[in-house]
Design a protein around this nucleic acid. Structure first.
Length: 163
DNA sequence: TAATCGATGGACT
DNA sequence: GTCCATCGATTAC
């Protein structure tokens, strides 16, 4: 069931918004220190699973949070999973998209080159002008690092989260 | 071992 | 606009 990723946020161990800040490794975020190309899935607020892609080398805790998707197929089953009627709202948020995709902690640490979850290229090509950068969402506790413009969205795409 | 707190979202006033 | 469900990880003691 393909999707196009339309909204992401970057997290690096060099800033406080990241779980791996200051190279802190815990049972929760240890997969972030894996080789890039792995899935990092964790439970937030006791309710929502958030899906990240580990991006750096082994031993370096960097990742990209997937915040929103544009569905290409499978809209019907995602509406059934989430109960959301409006197609453009099914995956418009990091917690909602994992529910729509059926992602849970069972995928934590899985390789994105495997068969359970993966990312691939398609024919869509973006120009720099169609990508907007803005401050990340929901990390006020990170202080000054919360202002980093590390949230990337596709301009005017209706599937991005509205915050 | 106990208290606190989220990389959220939905319901409600 | 405000409130809060819900639970594992983290922090406080």
């Amino acid at each position: 069931m393909p999707r196009i990723i339309v909204e992401t946020e970057a997290y690096s161990h060099t800033e406080k918004g990241c779980h791996a800040y200051n190279n802190r490794m815990t049972t929760r975020n240890e997969v972030m220190f894996n080789e890039g190309g792995h899935a990092y899935v964790y439970l937030c607020y006791g309710i929502h699973y958030l899906f990240n892609v580990v991006t750096n080398k082994n031993g370096i805790g960097d990742a990209v949070l997937i915040r929103a998707l544009e569905p290409l197929k499978g809209v019907d089953i995602m509406m059934k999973r989430t109960g959301v009627k409006e197609p453009a709202r099914i995956t418009s948020g990091p917690g909602k998209l994992t529910k729509a995709m059926g992602i849970d902690r069972g995928l934590n640490g899985k390789s994105l080159l495997g068969r359970e979850v993966w990312i691939e290229e398609n024919d869509a090509r973006l120009t720099g002008a169609s990508i907007q950068a803005s401050p990340r969402i929901g990390i006020d506790y990170a202080g000054k690092d919360a202002e980093l413009p590390w949230r990337f969205t596709i301009k005017d795409n209706p599937w991005i989260s509205r915050k």
